[in-house]
Computed example of a mutant assay.
Amino acid sequence: MTLTLTLFRHAKSSWDDAVPRDFDRPLNKRGEKAALTMGIWVKRNGLTFDHVVASPAVRVIETIDEFVKGASAQVDPNWDRRIYLASSATLMDVLRDQADEHKNLLMVGHNPGLEDLVFGLCPDDGTSPLRDLVWEKYPTAAIARMELNIAHWADVDRRCGHLTHFIRPRDLDPDLGPEDE
Rank of each mutant, 00 (worst) to 15 (best):
A141H: 10
D50L: 15
L95T: 09
A144S: 05
S55L: 09
N104M: 15
S128V: 07
L47V: 13
L130D: 08
E66S: 09
N45V: 06
D80F: 07
L121E: 07
R30I: 08
D132P: 02
H51C: 10
L91Q: 01
M38W: 02
G70L: 11
E66K: 07
M92F: 08
D100N: 15
G109A: 15
A73L: 14
W79I: 00
L121Y: 13
E101H: 14
L47P: 00
A34R: 14
P26V: 13
I143E: 05
K43Q: 12
L85R: 09
M146W: 08
A57W: 06
L95H: 13
R44D: 02
P112H: 00
D97T: 08
V108T: 09
A34M: 10
R82G: 02
V52C: 02
G70M: 15
A99K: 15
L47A: 03
L117W: 13
P123H: 14
K33E: 14
L105D: 09
V52R: 03
I64T: 03
V42N: 01
A142P: 03
I83Q: 01
N28S: 12
E115M: 09
D100W: 09
K103S: 13
E66W: 04
K29P: 13
V108F: 13
V118K: 07
D100K: 03
K103I: 03
W135F: 03
T140W: 05
L121G: 08
S55K: 04
P129G: 11
P112D: 11
W79S: 04
P26C: 06
W41Y: 14
L91N: 08
P112S: 02
V68H: 00
F49N: 01
V53R: 09
N28E: 14
V118M: 01
D125E: 15
V58T: 15
D116Y: 14
Y138L: 00
R82Y: 02
P112L: 00
V118T: 08
D100R: 06
P112I: 14
L91A: 01
D100F: 10
E32F: 08
E101M: 11
K103H: 14
D50C: 07
N28I: 11
L133S: 04
H110N: 12
G109S: 07
V60A: 05
T63D: 05
A89T: 15
F49M: 07
M92R: 13
D97A: 15
I143Y: 10
L117P: 02
V60C: 08
D65H: 03
T127F: 13
G120T: 12
D132N: 15
